[in-house]
C-alpha cells in the first residue's frame, strides 16, 4: 500500500511538472489509443520533452503503469473516454502496462 501511495505521488508530481513546463509554448504532444485490450501504437517514438496522452476508447476500464522500479508513472483507473498524460523528460525506452490486464503492454521510446 505504501508503494502504491508513493507511485501515485510520483504520478502527481509528473502532472505538476507538466503544468509548469510550457512557457515556450512549443511542447510536443503525442497520443496512444487504448482499445480492444491493447495499446495503439504499442511502440511510440517521441522527442525528449513530449507529453504523451493515453485515452481509453475501450469498453473496459484500464490504467497506465510504468514497468520501471520504482514506477516512473501510474495513472488512476481510466473509464471509457478518460485520459492520462505524462511528460517524458528523459531519453530511453519507457515500458508500461495495464495493471488490470497485465497482458496489455507498450513502450515509449524517447529521444
Amino acid at each position: 500500500m505504501d508503494n502504491t501511495t508513493l507511485n501515485r505521488r510520483r504520478a502527481l508530481a509528473g502532472g505538476v511538472a507538466l503544468l509548469g513546463a510550457g512557457p515556450a509554448g512549443a511542447e510536443a504532444a503525442a497520443a496512444v489509443s487504448v482499445n480492444f485490450h491493447a495499446f495503439a501504437p504499442p511502440l511510440l517514438r517521441v522527442a525528449v520533452g513530449t507529453t504523451v496522452t493515453w485515452t481509453n476508447e475501450d469498453d473496459t476500464p484500464h490504467n497506465i503503469v510504468s514497468t520501471a522500479e520504482p514506477r516512473a508513472f501510474r495513472s488512476g483507473v481510466l473509464d471509457t473516454g478518460e485520459s492520462f498524460a505524462f511528460r517524458f523528460a528523459t531519453p530511453g525506452t519507457h515500458g508500461y502496462y495495464c495493471s488490470l490486464h497485465p497482458t496489455m503492454q507498450g513502450s515509449i521510446v524517447v529521444g
Partner: peptide
C-alpha cells in the same frame, strides 16, 4: 478483484 484494488492499494 482487480477492479476493487486498482487505486491506493485497495484502501
Amino acid at each position: 478483484g482487480e477492479h476493487d484494488v486498482v487505486d491506493e492499494g485497495g484502501k
